[in-house]
């Protein structure tokens, strides 16, 4: 008598098992490279208080504009002197750049992830409906075309100026310009998936529309959506940094890579470290995420990888 495991053995002997997606991903050199950088940055973000940092917003007038590596001594309330090294120097208010960059990692990454989650979930919902409900399609897509005609950074700037600068408004302003791109992707996927026999079968069985969308169509949009989400995350981190750098993003009390650089603009000629260090962190983070995105695209969505 043949059991199920016998059959499986026979099948596997003929067709060697395909390595799982995670396996293939972990072997992809660019995913590995980006993943390591991103993990280090995440570790820094989580462990920021334990990495020899001081309060990132603490202003110290006596140690303003110090070059990287300078020894600073501060007198405590009880009269004892504490000496520490300002690894990345201090800014024009005497704040420790090293601490600000490390704490900034938290904010910058969090803003990127939050903006991605918002734009992907809103875009997914609208895209599913536009792709499946025929009469909605025309109206929604014309509106999305209009939104896409506004250059993303400009739209974010306009939204921030309307709502005022703050953590939540910046996250929203960064997320909204990305929505039409997600809608377009999801809609085009839905248009092909809805013609699949299993969707037809579900319709014939009288499955209610929300259930068809959720159970039969949505899961098939995930792979391309993850790829797109990675690129959105990279771009969101960039746009947030850009807004904060221009002085119209997150207020300086909350350190992000962008507003640390904004602080360093005035005295850049003499003290380039204020722009250099956060700039390195920012570039590394965006690079890591972009590279992971490329790898994910190769692995999860081979059709797309051929295009670029």
């Amino acid at each position: 008598m043949t059991t199920l495991s016998d059959i499986r053995e026979q099948v596997e002997a003929v067709a060697p098992s395909r390595p799982s997606t995670i396996r293939r991903l972990s072997r992809h050199p660019s995913v590995l490279f980006g993943g390591v950088i991103l993990l280090i940055l995440l570790a820094i973000a989580i462990a920021a208080p334990f990495l020899g940092t001081v309060a990132p917003s603490a202003i110290d007038p006596s140690s303003r504009n110090k070059k990287p590596g300078v020894e600073l001594s501060t007198r405590q309330a009880d009269g004892t002197k504490v000496t520490r090294t300002a690894w990345m120097g201090t800014d024009s208010l005497g704040r420790d750049v090293y601490s600000r960059v490390l704490y900034g990692t938290r904010v910058s990454l969090a803003v990127g992830v939050a903006a991605t989650i918002i734009s992907v979930s809103i875009g997914l919902t609208i895209g599913l409906l536009a792709g499946y409900v025929r009469w909605l399609d025309g109206v929604v897509m014309r509106f999305m075309d209009g939104m896409m005609a506004i250059p993303g950074i400009l739209l974010a700037i306009a939204l921030v100026s309307l709502w005022g600068a703050g953590l939540s408004t910046v996250i929203l302003a960064v997320a909204i310009p990305e929505i039409p791109r997600v809608v377009r992707l999801v809609r085009s996927l839905v248009l092909t998936i809805r013609e699949e026999p299993y969707v037809e079968a579900a319709v014939a069985l009288g499955t209610p529309m929300p259930l068809i969308l959720l159970r039969h169509i949505m899961p098939n949009t995930f792979a391309p959506l993850i790829v797109q989400g990675t690129f959105i995350c990279a771009s969101a981190i960039l746009v947030e940094a850009l807004l904060s750098f221009l002085g119209i993003g997150i207020p300086p009390e909350i350190p992000t890579w962008g507003n640390i650089m904004a602080e360093g603009r005035a005295l850049f000629r003499v003290f380039p470290h204020n722009i250099l260090f956060p700039g390195i962190f920012l570039s590394l983070a965006v690079l890591a995420i972009n590279v992971i995105g490329d790898g994910l695209r190769d692995t999860l969505d081979p059709r797309m990888s051929k295009r670029i």
């Binding site: 990279a234 700039g279 570039s283 965006v286 490329d294």
Partner: peptide, 14 residues
């Protein structure tokens, strides 16, 4: 890939 990742203002100051 580098060109996509390094922000405009960092390149500018560099």
């Amino acid at each position: 890939v580098f060109g996509f990742s390094v922000p405009v203002f960092v390149i500018g100051y560099l």
